[in-house]
């Protein structure tokens, strides 16, 4: 327990198996407050499953998953975990396509999530200001009244990041944020994530090595559900096992 203190996310000895296949095998990862962590690894390394465990979608067979040093995440469901302050961006951008960009953010905005609170909710000036602010950050202000379905792939990615911001989480889990983005968009995203990491913890899963380099964060390489190597990107990419199993010679 004491080890979990002063951590934002604490995974210790986590394992999960699907029909005998060990998707996650004795995985231990620590993320400190206002720290950015990049996770790399080959397909099937268990990156997405790890995120599923943290966000309550999958229950681990064994191991500890602690948030903010004190909350056991394995006992909570998705909504409760989200309300604790863990935001997740999916690999494939999932925004609410039949809502406008504005409504997407309004729904994500950190507000009471109860039924009647939502039924009688009216946006205050403060909320409007906050949503406008986020729209500016993710550069979608000019498209705020359009349906999310009509955004380009990159814009959807940004809208989803905007929704994450609106949730005001303490920990962000970001799965392949720059897939399908142009180089300049990628650069902007890296900048944005670095900005966010000043006040929050961020975990980024990504394949794009140049993007990871731009993040300039600590890197963990996963393979077969366990940590293969850990350190700076240069350290990790110099690791012979990582080269063998992931980067290729």
């Amino acid at each position: 327990m004491s080890k979990a203190q002063d951590t934002m996310l604490y995974l210790n000895g986590v394992s999960v198996a699907f029909d005998g296949f060990k998707a996650i095998n004795n995985l231990s990862i620590i993320v400190r407050p206002t720290e950015m962590l990049a996770i790399i690894g080959p397909n099937g390394a268990g990156k997405t499953t790890m995120m599923d465990i943290i966000t309550g979608k999958t229950r681990p067979d064994a191991g500890e998953v602690m948030f903010d040093g004190r909350t056991d995440l394995t006992k909570l469901d998705e909504a409760a975990i989200a309300n604790l302050g863990i935001g997740r961006k999916f690999q494939k951008p999932t925004v609410f396509e039949s809502h406008t960009v504005w409504d997407n953010l309004e729904m994500a905005l950190k507000k009471p999530r109860g039924i009647f609170a939502a039924l009688f909710y009216t946006a205050s000036d403060e909320d409007v200001t906050r949503i406008t602010e986020i729209l500016e950050t993710v550069r979608l202000l000019h498209r705020k009244d359009e349906f999310a379905a009509n955004l380009s792939h990159g814009q959807k990615q940004w809208l989803e990041i905007g929704m994450l911001l609106a949730q005001d989480p303490k920990l962000l889990l970001v799965d392949e944020p720059v897939a399908g983005m142009t180089d300049s968009e990628t650069e902007e995203t890296a900048k944005l994530l670095r900005e966010i990491a000043k006040t929050r913890s961020v975990v980024v899963v990504e394949h794009d090595m140049s993007f990871v380099r731009e993040l300039g964060s600590r890197v963990v390489c996963l393979a077969e559900g366990a940590v293969l190597a850990e350190g700076s990107l240069d350290q990790v990419s110099a690791n012979p096992v990582v080269i063998e199993r992931y980067l290729g010679r």
């Binding site: 998705e78 909504a79 989200a82 609410f96 809502h99 929704m163």
Partner: peptide
């Protein structure tokens, strides 16, 4: 939102 993307709605805390 629930109709279109149920689990996404869960992940933003509803």
């Amino acid at each position: 939102a629930v109709r279109d993307a149920e689990s996404r709605t869960r992940f933003i805390g509803y």
